[in-house]
Design a protein around this nucleic acid. Structure first.
Lengths: 157, 157
DNA sequence: GTCCAAGAAGACTATTTCAATCGTGGATTT
DNA sequence: AAATCCACGATTGAAATAGTCTTCTTGGAC
């Protein structure tokens, strides 16, 4: 079904929040972020912890503690974040790792899908947290958006 | 976690199979395809039925019946197929339809992710079943593949 | 006309993945 | 010491996927 988990969403929201210019202090607590965006605190906390362990965030404990970015937002890509939280991105189970699915030997779409997979990785890798702040997600090829026709149930094409 | 379901895989495999030049007859039965690629028959049957109802395949019942493409492989895109089988492609739950997730009002990554979403749609829309047969999945921008570094656990970047 | 090979269709079950919670413990500031 | 905050592991509940079973219909072969 090709979608990100909520955890990944939460992680991106949090990172973007921390990357945005903020009036008061540079850091923000999990609670603060959770309340701002109506995210369940314990869940967000876990996500932040994982992001911390993976080196995207640093944390400070105690009163007025919180999280802050461990490196410039320009140098954190959406791909890294998603992969950290959701685990490796997999388009099909075929090439998860070495594990073979029942097809694998006979699978004839494996190779083409691998390329699609790589294109998606490349896309996600090209977007940084800073880009999210600017709201200017680069448009790799700036071809027109997918036409409406292709969004309708496929029948007469 | 961003992946296709097996049903979608099965559907693509079947369509590619039907698009490939075949010595004997033009059509192929579900059983035949299932055996060739080691796919559970009842499951594949369902997928084929759905593809039939959606206008990608025509079916013939009775002895020596089977499925065949309803239109040239060039005019069936991976996007249509995936969407037919897996349902609408969703990158995040935010913009599923009108339904709002708890964030939605406050969500600050919605818009950027929508663009990523559209890029992925565009990518999938650019690939036809015929392309799968040629194994030449077009490389939208032919930039180098994602470097190895970005495939490793993100730590020192 | 009977039989068999296929497709059509719906109900059903098992497994896995996600989302979310709970509880406990440790660090830091005031 | 109290309040605030992060760290971490275990667990539960719900939803999505994968796969099975059963019954029915259709159409050709003999």
């Amino acid at each position: 079904m090709l979608k990100l988990t909520k955890k990944a969403d939460y992680g991106l929201i949090a990172l973007k929040h921390l990357a945005m210019p903020r009036p008061t202090r540079e850091s923000a607590s999990a609670k603060e972020i959770a309340e701002t965006y109506h995210i369940p605190l314990p869940l967000l906390a876990k996500v932040l912890q994982k992001l911390g362990k993976s080196g995207f965030l640093t944390s400070e404990q105690g009163t007025n503690g919180g999280y802050r970015l461990a490196r410039p937002a320009e140098r954190i890509t959406v791909l890294e974040v998603v992969r950290t939280i959701d685990g490796p991105i997999i388009l099909t189970s075929c090439f998860t790792s070495e594990r073979t699915c029942d097809q694998s030997d006979t699978c004839i779409v494996k190779e083409p899908l691998r390329r699609v997979h790589e294109s998606i990785l490349r896309l996600l890798d090209s977007i940084s947290i800073a880009d999210l702040v600017d709201e200017e997600v680069p448009d790799p090829n700036d071809s027109p958006l997918v036409e409406l026709s292709s969004l309708l149930p496929a029948v007469s094409r």
